[in-house]
């Protein structure tokens, strides 16, 4: 049925491939806006803390800041922080490997997609907390469950965005490349990969934040 769709010209979107570095550059104006937001938040916080006047309910910004300084000097807390970062890194690496490879395969091949999709669909609907007892049974109480959970939540956004990215590369680009004599590897590395890159980056960003949030 693929051939039927071909002569119909679908206006394809131009992938926003190049990242706009100009927008990321430092500017004094931007810094000022940030400071205003930050200042207003601190002020509200401070006023609220004054109102409740109870460090148990809402500690004031100053107390919190002092506690942070104290924590930075505390070796134990720093070690824990390092451990957390290490876990997130390992979990994300697993998610990247599985997510990108399966996502690419799903985007590339309809057969792979048909085979894998029925597993992916239900699996990603499982609430993350529901995995906790199971993973403790599987991996024991050590690193296992944490790594599994981080990898679990991060894999799906990475996978699905990679798949969407590969599918979004217009057929025209493949036709053009093949008519210029490009082989399989060349098409993958110079057409599919850069074409899917923007969506891939989006997936990795979502996966990264999801991974962080599931550390606890």
């Amino acid at each position: 049925m693929e051939e039927i769709a071909r002569p119909v010209r679908v206006p394809f979107r131009q992938p926003p491939v190049r990242i706009d570095f100009a927008r990321m550059r430092f500017s004094p104006k931007k810094l000022a806006y940030r400071l205003v937001t930050f200042g207003v938040l601190l002020l509200i916080w401070h006023l609220a803390a004054l109102h409740y006047h109870n460090p148990l309910l809402l500690p004031s910004p100053l107390d919190t800041f002092l506690a942070l300084i104290g924590a930075l000097g505390n070796v134990e807390i720093m070690q824990d922080l390092l451990l957390t970062m290490q876990r997130v890194l390992i979990g994300l690496s697993i998610a990247l490997v599985i997510g990108l490879s399966v996502g690419f395969a799903m985007g590339y091949s309809k057969i792979v997609n048909e085979l894998v999709d029925p597993i992916i669909g239900p699996l990603r609907q499982v609430p993350i907390m529901a995995w906790v007892p199971l993973t403790i049974v599987w991996f024991g109480l050590g690193e296992g469950p944490t790594l599994f959970l981080i990898a679990m939540v991060a894999t799906f956004p990475i996978m699905l965005n990679a798949m969407a990215g590969v599918r979004a590369v217009p057929q025209n680009y493949y036709d053009a490349a093949r008519s210029m004599g490009a082989g399989r590897w060349s098409i993958f590395s110079r057409i599919t990969l850069p074409g899917a890159l923007p969506d891939m980056i989006t997936g990795v960003r979502i996966g990264l934040s999801a991974g962080w949030m599931s550390v606890i």
């Binding site: 394809f12 992938p15 025209n172 074409g195």
Partner: peptide, 12 residues
Amino acid sequence: GVVFQDYALFPW
């Protein structure tokens, strides 16, 4: 050699 209607230049 093929010239496509929308040119199909690789935007990257």
